[in-house]
């Protein structure tokens, strides 16, 4: 288990982390969320000794993290970094060996990952010739080479299209199912809410929300009604006890109050037009976050 225990980091007058506490279990895939500048990168770098906290501790399985402990961790920094003129296969083998693999083990693992990530035909080309998406895959492969017990990935989905992000999430999910602890950060709350079950949301250096995504959303009092279909908006404006949040020709979003009976709303909607979607939802993760910080 990776435990951030009351860690704080002060850069002069700037507080990057302020008593931040949370943990990642083996087998868990935890989304580490928060707006830009919330302190996510600082916290993640502290796992690798690149930032020394001014308060609190970071520990792995109850032990302080030593350089040898880190050989069992995999890291994908926010700023991607590979040797530009080195071929993917050579990079993978190099980083595998740096993490303590024998040359044979490293060569085998590199071959397997290059196949898994569909990079086989680019394996011997300098990384700088690869597309952005492919470089990102090589970067992830570097972090996965030595079958780490803990994966720390800073913004792994940034710059990926939704499908590529889904694929990467699936790879991470498999690692978690195999027993690794997976921690990844993102500032795009809406993108991430479907990619993992558990999240920790930080703001201004401390944790504001933590838990299962669905539970966090459900725990809010608010409910929203989303209606998609061909209908004008006039009927919705006349309904008692609802607040019209937004609408476009095909989509209406309402906030409900306790007194609404769904059956009445459905009736009204059906009369007004041809409905494709009629869905009652708790607030989205980013709406939960907004509620929490305001």
């Amino acid at each position: 288990m990776l435990l951030f225990d009351q860690i704080g980091k002060q850069y002069g007058d700037v507080t990057a982390l302020d008593g931040c506490t949370f943990s990642v279990e083996r087998g868990q895939m935890l989304g580490f969320l928060g707006p830009n500048g919330a302190g996510k990168t600082t916290a993640m770098r502290s796992v690798f000794g690149l930032v020394r906290p001014t308060a609190g501790t970071v520990s792995w399985d109850g032990q302080p993290i030593e350089p040898t402990t880190r050989l069992r961790f995999g890291y994908m920094p926010e700023e991607r970094g590979l040797y530009p003129r080195m071929a993917p296969r050579d990079q993978l083998i190099y980083f595998g060996e740096l993490h303590g693999m024998s040359p044979n083990e490293a060569a085998f693992a590199a071959g397997r990952l290059l196949g898994e990530f569909d990079l086989g035909d680019r394996a011997e080309e300098p990384v700088t010739n690869l597309s952005h998406g492919n470089q990102q895959r090589v970067q992830l492969a570097v972090a996965l080479m030595h079958d780490p017990e803990l994966l720390v990935l800073d913004e792994p989905f940034s710059g990926l299209d939704p499908l590529a992000a889904q694929n990467m999430a699936a790879v991470l999910r498999r690692r978690a199912d195999d027993g690794a602890a997976v921690l990844f950060s993102s500032h795009q709350l809406d993108v991430v809410e479907n990619l993992c079950d558990d999240v920790v949301i930080i703001n201004r250096g401390s944790v504001v929300l933590a838990g299962d995504v669905m539970e966090l959303r459900a725990s809010s009092e608010r409910r929203y009604l989303e209606i998609v279909g061909k209908s004008d908006v006039a009927w919705a404006e006349e309904l008692p006890g609802v607040k019209l949040l937004s609408h476009s020709p095909n989509r209406i979003r309402l906030e409900l109050t306790d007194s609404n009976r769904l059956i009445d709303l459905a009736d009204a909607a059906e009369k007004a037009g041809d409905i494709v979607v009629f869905s009652v939802e708790p607030p989205s993760l980013s709406e939960v976050f907004e509620e929490a910080v305001t």
Binding site: L50, F73, G74, F95, L98
Partner: peptide, 9 residues
């Protein structure tokens, strides 16, 4: 930025 990855290990 590759140094960041290297320093991880």
């Amino acid at each position: 930025r590759v140094v960041e990855v290297v320093l991880g290990a």
